[in-house]
Design a protein around this nucleic acid. Structure first.
Lengths: 195, 195
DNA sequence: CACTTTGCATTGCACTCGTAATGTAATCGC
DNA sequence: GCGATTACATTACGAGTGCAATGCAAAGTG
């Protein structure tokens, strides 16, 4: 049976199955066997591509943040050449909210990994990198939108945290999308155009 | 051996052990046996007081939110009679940040339960109730602090979300306490005194 | 003093877990 | 053609899981 195969495609296929399970039933439901079944392969195949469960989780984590960043990229591109920085900020932040199904799944996964990272330092490192990049990007956009802003770095931290906080509350406490979006809009007005 | 015993004290003792484990190693490390060992009892004792693992988790969840609310209560009382509403808001929100060790543990537990609630609807209900109460309380304080505020409800949602978001980032992405507090202060200024 | 209830401790069961080991069939480089 | 590599499939193992069952001693209740 062994045709020549692209191993990264296979790994991606398995990681996608893992992320589906994590999104729907939580990281606790992720095991070699459940992932294998969801991916439609045997657990031997999973073992063939990942030497350990840990490495599989790691790979899936990177895949998830990759998906998120590429979605951002697409939406940014859709804004056209030289968009208003405020629009760019909105795209960045609202992409964190679980709205339609594709991004809702990613948000669920994100929350699961954040909780995981709170007790596993190696995972935390990766999240810290991503957040630092996002914060820096945001700070730049804030500066572009309001050159007189007194503290773009603090504002960026705040924007990022409130978007993530709204997302968490939507997923865990029944906050509605409309309310979250309204709050996020208020946040933009009030922080970006700060005195 | 069986002296007469206060069963709620025993349940509390076991729940506290569960929360310690959840805070240090995550909800995944919580099992009947690990909890029993941490509590210094046998797994039979745990089984005696909780008919199932699910009920134990439920009880611990309520215990955790109880601890949080009582801490808020104490700090509120420490503000004295008729404090400035802004101080009350600060107390409420900064209590969500993992600063010293006792509240850091609770924050870790909170994050773990939020992730759990994202995939388990029964747990989500309880979190939703708590959040709704907090939001209502916050909205009242905002009204008291700035009677001319255009949208106290939206502002309350935003404040709560940003505090929780900052907490999540501290726990999962290495955000420092100082930075989180600075951001939270900016948030208060900018949202409560909104135009 | 008998009896029921309370407060555990111990043991066992069926199951799932991650991982190691082994087998095997197809493909590639030579 | 042939050995090495690739791509799995299958099986087995020891550890851990939630939970049910049983035992049993002390204390309250009549």
């Amino acid at each position: 049976m062994p045709r020549r195969v692209d191993p990264d495609e296979r790994r991606g296929h398995i990681a996608a199955a893992l992320l589906r399970i994590a999104a729907q039933e939580g990281l606790a439901a992720v095991s070699l066997r459940t992932v294998a079944r969801e991916a439609g392969v045997t657990s031997g195949a999973v073992q063939h591509y990942f030497p350990s469960k840990h490495s599989m989780l790691e790979y899936a984590m990177h895949a998830a943040s990759g998906r998120y960043e590429s979605r951002i990229g697409k939406r940014m591109a859709a804004l056209g050449e030289r968009p208003h920085p405020r629009d760019a900020i909105w795209v960045l932040l609202s992409a964190l909210l679980p709205s339609a199904e594709p991004e809702a799944e990613d948000a669920r996964v994100g929350l699961a990994f954040q909780a995981h990272a709170a007790t596993h330092d190696d995972a935390a490192e990766h999240l810290a990198e991503g957040n630092a990049r996002l914060r820096a990007h945001l700070a730049g956009l804030i500066r572009a939108s309001n050159p007189a802003h007194p503290e773009p770095a603090v504002a960026a931290t705040l924007l990022l945290a409130s978007a993530e906080g709204l997302a968490v509350q939507m997923l865990s406490s029944g906050l509605q999308l409309d309310d979250a979006q309204t709050a996020l809009e208020l946040q933009l007005v009030v922080v970006v155009d700060a005195s």
